[in-house]
Design a protein around this nucleic acid. Structure first.
Lengths: 142, 142
DNA sequence: TGGCAATCGGATCGAATTGATCCGATTTGA
DNA sequence: TCAAATCGGATCAATTCGATCCGATTGCCA
């Protein structure tokens, strides 16, 4: 019931990238690692995954780097988490249904898991990168 | 972003226990393992944790076993998950604040994590064991 | 009252996933 | 054409998770 560290790092990274989106049109992994304090190989790995997911566009070669492929308001926490961890699924039943969830009590529980899963995804989808950068010390409560 | 398997097993187990709550006043780990199909040592481990959390009351000796310490309506998924996995915290920042979350952008992200965390906990707290047993094929959507 | 049987409780061991590091392929600029 | 700098994939170690085993405790029965 905890987010993986890489997903957390990715959010911090994307948040920093969103702040630099207006100034420098493109930024590289090295400067981002120095700014966030994360190890460079980890940032490189995250950049690779985020690029594969289509959230950022990378440019190779001298003077290359990457930039957000969409405006910060159109990127949510759910997008980032799914890019790093795969589909959001609290239980294996919700994920693909490949398991033998044919036990009677298990199938009885499954619809409720779907509801919980949807609530989690909704909460993540409701927070965008723009809101992360715009609200410095906003007091948000559940 | 996935619930641990043990927590999932615990929910299935407690759901089965809630159904037997009215009939036999007390049931043991062996019969529960046979009914749910889970390995016996795993069930024993779960019983131990749930007993420590105060959700069930165990009785040792011949003819012993355990029973729910509270009515099914007063036990929620949040109780079970917290009993198995510990406090519900999506990120380490939300958990205890022991980490050096003193980076400027991280602290900016934290209030939003609190909101997401509260939403998750609320979704889990809204589902009780009674509702799991009462709704055989209820169509619940997010 | 002593022994026996059945149960829970904690501790140990193995396995899987995660997280960090390294090296090669590719591309641009001089 | 050469060289430098970057991304991309592959490899390796560590932590956590999950399953199993053995001992301590308790209640029934002779």
């Amino acid at each position: 019931m905890r987010l993986s560290s890489l997903a957390d790092y990715a959010v911090v990274m994307m948040s920093a990238a969103a702040r630099h989106c207006g100034g420098a049109g493109r930024l590289n992994a090295t400067s981002l690692a120095e700014e966030t304090g994360l190890p460079l190989p980890t940032v490189q790995k995250l950049v690779s995954k985020l690029s594969s997911a289509g959230l950022i566009e990378s440019q190779r070669g001298t003077g290359g780097g990457f930039r957000l492929s969409r405006p910060p308001a159109a990127i949510s926490l759910a997008d980032i988490v799914e890019a790093i961890e795969g589909p959001i699924a609290m239980t294996a039943c919700v994920d693909n249904g490949a398991h033998d969830c044919c036990v009677e009590e298990s199938c009885r529980v499954k619809p409720h898991w779907n509801a919980v899963n949807g609530a989690v995804r909704g909460a993540l989808a409701g927070v965008s990168l723009a809101s992360l950068s715009a609200a410095p010390a906003l007091e948000v409560q559940a």
